[in-house]
Design a protein around this nucleic acid. Structure first.
Lengths: 184, 184
DNA sequence: TTCTGACACTCTAGGCAGAGAGTGTCAGCT
DNA sequence: AGCTGACACTCTCTGCCTAGAGTGTCAGAA
């Protein structure tokens, strides 16, 4: 169980899993599929992950962590509040939903967030929420909590109406502008 | 087929249908259930409506029309923009979702809106959207279209997060405040 | 150690048949 | 006319079975 070697294999498995889950969805992807794509035998997978759910959870965590990293970085950029919020939304909600919807079965990610992968999703969401709240509060917002809710929840409505097109991105931009205006 | 008499019966059927659909959902409600609640025989229903879907559609139309009426009236009230928008949202999104969620099977309404009842839903949504757009434009909004989108779509996100509690109402209020601020 | 072939187990998909419920539409009663 | 009892039809639900796929875990090879 050497550290770097094991991480390499774990990542190979997660890469393979992402491809298969995206193509077939969680239910229709077998451990055999993942093993083949990762170029190892099926039993070997069980030395790195407990089961299929565990693989999915780890994969989701990797995706969410990366998006959160970029989104929070956008808040720290040298520009005005509107641009910062827009950058944040584009990284967090925009890129993520695009990634989900560009493949079949992106819905599985959403489902999982309310199921066994909820702890993972909740943890990252908490980080996002805290960073955003702090940023708005230090900018002197009247009610930072309400602004955070609006920024994080409104995009769900946009997505429901139209999950794919450029209009979604445009609406994120309008949202950033509106919140920025009501903060200052 | 005297006018007023027929309307009376139609309304009695729709009242009965609302109760049953709310309790059992669309699929689990039979024409016999509705007939019994409306105190008439099952075949009689077919003299006023073509079939079960037709009843459901008419029922949904009645609910949506009534809510739209109140919401649009709120826009005309004598107060500032924030209060008008808040009143609008509370009538339209607030009251409607509360009505749906206070009963079992409110989900059927949402489903139907994307199915055979889509024309009904689209028509009322169009009315709402036009009234809101006109109101915001005449108040001098920069981009009325974007504001309308935000006002109508953001609540879907709120609902997704928490369909029932007072927090939902509170968020509608924050939304109204934010949009009102960015309009002026 | 690191991994694999093989095993036992569960679980879902699918086909099939019968029963029952529910729909829509008559001819005929009031 | 307005309405109902009765009818034929469809369609879903249920139980039951079988075949097959997929999972997780060994003992033992490399």
């Amino acid at each position: 169980m050497a550290g770097p070697q094991e991480d390499e294999k774990r990542n190979r498995i997660l890469d393979a899993a992402l491809g298969k889950f995206a193509a077939y969805g969680f239910a229709r992807t077998s451990m055999a599929d993942i093993a083949e794509a990762a170029e190892m035998s099926r039993p070997a997978l069980y030395q790195y992950f407990a089961n299929k759910e565990d693989i999915f959870r780890a994969m989701l965590e990797r995706i969410l962590e990366a998006a959160a990293e970029k989104a929070i970085a956008a808040l720290q950029s040298e520009s005005d509040m509107e641009a910062q919020l827009d950058g944040f939304l584009q990284r967090w909600t925009g890129d993520l939903t695009e990634q989900m919807r560009s493949t079949e079965h992106g819905d599985d990610l959403v489902e999982a967030k309310t199921g066994y992968a909820k702890p993972v999703s909740d943890a990252v969401n908490g980080r996002i929420r805290r960073a955003l709240h702090k940023h708005l509060a230090s900018a002197g917002a009247d009610d930072p909590g309400a602004a955070v809710d609006l920024l994080l929840l409104a995009p769900l409505g946009f997505k429901y109406d139209d999950p794919t097109t450029a209009r979604f991105r445009k609406r994120l931009q309008s949202l950033a502008a509106s919140v920025a205006a009501s903060v200052s």
